[in-house]
């Protein structure tokens, strides 16, 4: 499916929708919007859960690196003519596991991450050139789509695959949440209590890789970091109770995703990624301004604000 056609279709749909009620009917009626909202929710939930631990474990830079890897993986798949999805998932998961292996205790040094990250971006530039110069009819658009996402261009297969995969990530996160939380907060005590700290680090980064690959198609390689970091950062500001923050992070991510999609739907000139990330950033900003001082009482302030 040509994402650009879908993009124009999205614009047209936005213009047809005049009132809020017909807008909702439109969303339910248009298949690409239905896919965007359903897959978007699943992706956002997984990003929120994964992101909470990423912020807790101070591994946001690793997530940053993985989001760039997603770009290189997708373009490599395009350049050699392989399936985009396979390229994305394989690269993200492999690099995530390599990063877990490079660092001690499943944490990589930020200089190592930085060097690997910039080299992979250089490789991405190479694949972009190979792809745009070798295949006929290709232009820079595919590269741009990978970078900035085409959630309104998801096909039925993509939407179903992404939803299934990210729901799987959600389930896995819920299963490992308790030991992972223990291992993240107090590693020494956790390993003394025979919690498999190192294995958890690997599993966790693997899940980050899968989430990055899935989210790349929705919000783009360059922007998925915001979906990982902003809701989690806001949730951590709003409550100091870990499990409440974990659910809050997922809820804020879904809220940002849907509001962002609605904004982009209402105004077709605004890319959905921008809508999603402005809402997420806005929530984070509010959490910084009001959440820091009185943690307990501020809890109600975040998600209720619509």
């Amino acid at each position: 499916m040509n994402p650009i056609l879908a993009w124009h279709a999205a614009g047209l749909a936005g213009r047809i929708a005049s009132g809020p009620l017909s807008g909702i009917a439109d969303i339910a009626g248009q298949s690409f919007l239905r896919y965007a909202f359903l897959a978007g929710a699943a992706i956002a939930a997984a990003s929120g859960l994964v992101g909470y631990f990423m912020v807790l474990r101070s591994q946001v830079f690793t997530g940053d690196a993985l989001s760039h890897v997603a770009f290189t993986g997708a373009l490599a798949a395009l350049a050699v003519g392989a399936d985009l999805l396979i390229g994305l998932y394989a690269t993200c998961v492999l690099v995530a596991l390599a990063m877990a292996a490079l660092g001690t205790r499943g944490h990589a040094d930020d200089t190592v991450i930085g060097s690997v990250l910039s080299w992979l971006l250089g490789l991405g530039a190479l694949f972009l050139t190979i792809y745009t110069t070798s295949s006929t009819g290709a232009n820079g658009t595919s590269g741009v789509n990978v970078l900035f996402g085409t959630i309104f261009g998801l096909s039925a297969t993509q939407a179903i695959t992404d939803s299934a995969v990210t729901l799987g990530v959600c389930v896995a996160m819920v299963v490992i949440a308790r030991p992972l939380l223990f291992a993240s907060l107090d590693e020494a005590v956790a390993s003394a209590r025979r919690v498999p700290v190192r294995a958890l680090g690997f599993v966790y980064l693997g899940l980050v890789g899968v989430t990055a690959a899935a989210a790349t198609q929705a919000v783009g390689a360059l922007l998925l970091l915001g979906l990982l970091a902003a809701p989690a950062g806001a949730a951590q500001r709003l409550t100091s109770r870990p499990f409440r923050a974990l659910w809050l992070s997922a809820g804020l991510a879904i809220f940002s995703m849907w509001s962002g999609l609605l904004i982009a739907y209402a105004n077709p000139r605004i890319p959905p990624s921008f809508g999603i990330l402005s809402v997420a950033t806005g929530i984070y900003l509010i959490a910084i301004l009001f959440g820091g001082a009185s943690r307990r009482s501020a809890l109600a302030g975040g998600p209720a604000r619509t």
């Binding site: 101070s58 232009n139 922007l223 890319p271």
Partner: peptide, 29 residues
């Protein structure tokens, strides 16, 4: 850890704004 969340958010939002500008400008690929 709060700092790294903030840096990540700044980065992602900046890129999203860039995507918006590119989309508003059009034909600038």
């Amino acid at each position: 850890s709060g700092e790294s969340a903030l840096i990540g958010t700044v980065q992602a939002f900046a890129l999203a704004a860039g995507a918006l500008f590119v989309s508003l400008y059009g034909g600038f690929l």
